[in-house]
Design a protein around this nucleic acid. Sequence first.
DNA 1: TCTAATATGATAATCTTTATCTAATTAGAA
DNA 2: TTCTAATTAGATAAAGATTATCATATTAGA
Lengths: 133, 133
Amino acid sequence: MQKFRDKGLKLTPQRLAIMEYLDGNRNHPSADDIYSKIRKIYPMMSFATVYNTLETLKKRGDVVEITIDPERRHYDTDTSHHHHLICKKCKKIKDIHRDFSINIPEDQKGAFEVLGNHVEFYGVCPTCNTKGE
Amino acid sequence: MQKFRDKGLKLTPQRLAIMEYLDGNRNHPSADDIYSKIRKIYPMMSFATVYNTLETLKKRGDVVEITIDPERRHYDTDTSHHHHLICKKCKKIKDIHRDFSINIPEDQKGAFEVLGNHVEFYGVCPTCNTKGE
DNA sequence: TCTAATATGATAATCTTTATCTAATTAGAA
DNA sequence: TTCTAATTAGATAAAGATTATCATATTAGA
Ligand SMILES: [Mn+2]
Ligand SMILES: [Mn+2]
Ligand SMILES: [Zn+2]
Ligand SMILES: [Zn+2]
């Protein structure tokens, strides 16, 4: 938490609430997840502030945006290089920590400058599999 | 094209225009790409019909939805298993045909039923790299 | 030709995300 | 502690993408 007290980042109650919520959170929440949860405790929280803060944290590299759910964006506080497993039914996102050594064949890469990769595994989580039938 | 003339799919001029546009298209167009292009020739085309048709084609398995651009959904007529390379600047999407044998380590998979995977490579395409500087 | 089933498209509605702008707050200097 | 410049919050509007409604038009067959 203290790691935010620098680079001219002003600390406000709202930011602190968001950062506290995110700290150690491995659920890849959406903006709405964050807003809904926090407003219960801090009803003065605004949606705009959630987006503003996420934008700020993203720029600082404290949070990374995940494009894996077509419905909405999710945010990850684990900024290390890793991959994800998403449940097609409940959209729960799980981390996959493993360094797959995948590289694009030279003939397909051409002059494209490849900066990174992300593997999305998809399927059905144990919970949904049980409930389903 | 003739492959659509079955399973009770009614052929309308609008659908034919969309299918013709998609046939062999490797650009992973968005709904808007499709709509914008087609309306020049068929001004009677409606956005709703584009979405309706994409939904129909998706259900039939003739088209697959791609979640790689947080701004909008893209559609792929190549339904074989393959991966993508996206330019962070212009959002151009390129196919990567290669079967990476990636599997989730057992200890991380647990009881999760994994149905597939998709690798997203990202970087900067030659065009954007040149223009950029 | 007739008809049942299906599709179109105008329109409204919903949702997510971004933009604007003023009042309030923060951090740091004095 | 007080003051002030810079930043932030949040109400609100706006923008975009996608979905829902539903009356009208069209299609595929009988
Ligand atoms: Mn993660
Ligand atoms: Mn493709
Ligand atoms: Zn699930
Ligand atoms: Zn590019």
